[in-house]
Simulated assay, not measured.
Amino acid sequence: MNPSACPAAKLLEVDRINLAALALTGAATSTGLAAEHEVRRKFAYQKANKASAALAEVFASSAPDNEVLFELPYPLPT
């Protein structure tokens, strides 16, 4: 089977993103999404895992929890 002929290779980027988002939110099962987009369940799981890793990376704190981010002057100017 030619890899470029498989349905997953033809899937648009926006459809890949939507598939991952739906899988992450639990709005649809990976099995259902795979059937809807005519791709393998493995592909749906891969997209969901990739999106989950990207979210974890984006929301990972780069600053220690005890770092002071800013200070307010006290007493406040009037």
Rank of each mutant, 00 (worst) to 15 (best):
N18A: 10
V39F: 01
A8G: 02
R16I: 07
A20F: 03
K50W: 00
H37F: 13
L55G: 10
P75C: 02
A51Q: 11
H37Y: 10
E57F: 00
K42L: 08
L24K: 10
E67S: 07
T29P: 07
P75M: 06
A44V: 04
K47P: 00
D15E: 15
F59G: 00
C6T: 14
N18T: 07
N18L: 13
F70S: 09
N66C: 04
H37G: 06
C6Q: 14
A63T: 11
R16L: 09
L69A: 14
A53P: 02
S30A: 13
G32S: 12
P73C: 10
L72Q: 12
T25Y: 05
V68D: 12
T25W: 05
A35D: 15
A27W: 12
A21Q: 14
G26A: 01
G26E: 00
Y74T: 13
A48P: 02
N66A: 08
A48R: 08
P7K: 06
E57N: 09
E13L: 14
V39M: 05
S4W: 00
A63K: 14
V39C: 07
M1C: 12
L24R: 12
A27E: 15
P75S: 03
A5P: 03
A9K: 04
E36K: 15
K10C: 04
K10G: 02
L22D: 09
R16Q: 09
L33D: 03
P7G: 00
A27C: 14
V39K: 07
N2S: 15
S52Q: 09
L11G: 02
L76M: 13
A60N: 06
L12N: 03
L24C: 11
P64Q: 08
V68K: 07
T78R: 09
A20E: 08
V68H: 03
T29R: 05
A51G: 02
Y45S: 09
A23W: 04
L12Y: 05
Q46H: 11
V14Y: 13
E13D: 15
H37M: 06
G26P: 02
L24N: 08
Y45W: 10
E57A: 11
P64A: 11
A9E: 06
L24H: 07
L69Q: 14
V14E: 15
H37L: 09
A9T: 06
P73L: 12
L24Q: 09
A9V: 03
T78G: 08
S30H: 11
P64D: 12
A48W: 00
T25A: 08
A35C: 10
S62Q: 05
F70K: 08
R16E: 10
D65H: 07
C6L: 14
E67D: 10
I17H: 12
A48F: 00
D15P: 00
R41T: 09
A5T: 10
D15H: 11
E71Y: 01
